[in-house]
Computed example of a mutant assay.
Amino acid sequence: MFKTQIATYKNLSDADKKKFIADTLLDNALYILVLILIICVVIYNPRFISGSSIINILTLSSTRLVMALGIAGTVILAGTDLSAGRMLGLTACISASLLQAPDYAAKMYKSLTWLPQDPASSIIGQLICVIIIVMIVGGIIGFFNGFMSARFMLHPFIVTLGTQLIIYGLSLIYATWGSNAGAPIGGIDQRYTDFVIGNVFGDSDFYLPWLLVYAIIISAVIWFIWNKTVFGKNMFAVGCNAEAAKVSGVSVFWTTTLVFMLAGAMYGLAGFLESARVGSNTAATGNGYELDAIAACVIGGVSFTGGVGKVKGVIIGVILLQIINAALIFLNVPGSITYIVRGAIILVACAIDMRKYLIQK
């Protein structure tokens, strides 16, 4: 990429070289600002680039990455998904309620005794079962989103805005089931926690958590689906031009529906992982997560105009956003200012994306 840009630069006239440099700086303005921010934070607090700090940033990015990869598919279709955060919250509550420790006094389902009493026993089978359950729940809701968008030609923004509220209501209802009475769903089994956020190896200075390993595996699977399957090719074709894709024999209805189903399953998986990371889940778990995920997609080059996006771009976008959040914490920036910065990032990223689109036209 850089070699191509250098070769292009050398063949330009002096006037065009200045314009080329200005355009390049503008297109990469967000990355440049993040780099400047990192330098400032390192000067202020060198611990920001310590091994444990870097691993912590990557670990915190893992769950958001799983969600962002789901949302990225809907953005590639020139849509979006505002229900992602609430879907994560619902599936996180379901995961926590099904995997509470057997001896936890405030168990949501006191009659549920499917986990072994012995703390040394394996619960891999139960964990896989819960993963399947939450992915099915997410997939069903995703199917509804995709069906409504494709069948009735409704913009995904409107559809998912409605389902966002519906899912939040379902989460509030679910939190009152059993003996829970709306209290935070905690007391999750330590074996579940270890399965998600336990360390593969390492110590406090440098370690590799399982959550990061799962994120890498999931990213590889999504990369394969996007780039090596007919479904992935159809997704990009519909995102580029739905009418042209339809003429070419692509089922726009089923492609759109399946993209939202895959996204929903990803949110369910993210909910399973986030539930163990958070430890105590409520109906508010996941609130606003979809905004960070959408911002990460745009930062990573997934275009709202449709048909453009790469897995590596989404990964970069999620990590950059988490670096910014961590940097603001290291600089002791108030939480209220953090929201302003995140909002500004979304606006800048979208403006840069639209500028690239207009230049291409």
Rank of each mutant, 00 (worst) to 15 (best):
T160L: 04
G142N: 01
D118V: 06
G162D: 02
Y168S: 03
F144M: 11
W177I: 07
P156S: 09
P119L: 08
L165H: 07
V130A: 02
L211E: 05
G178E: 14
I188F: 10
L161H: 11
G139L: 00
W210E: 04
L127Q: 10
V134M: 03
S121M: 11
M135D: 07
F144I: 15
N180K: 03
L165A: 13
V213I: 06
A215Q: 03
L127H: 00
I197K: 14
V213F: 10
I185P: 13
L165S: 05
F152P: 05
F201V: 13
I173L: 10
I166E: 04
Q126F: 09
A120S: 08
S149K: 14
L212H: 00
I124K: 08
L172Y: 10
P209G: 06
I141Y: 01
G182F: 06
L127C: 10
I185R: 15
I173C: 09
Y207S: 14
I132R: 10
D189N: 11
G146E: 12
I128N: 03
G178L: 05
I128L: 13
A183P: 04
T176R: 12
I123C: 04
I141Q: 02
T176E: 13
G146A: 06
D118N: 09
L127V: 01
R191S: 10
G169Y: 09
I173Y: 02
S122C: 04
I216H: 01
I133R: 14
L161F: 15
V213G: 04
Q190A: 13
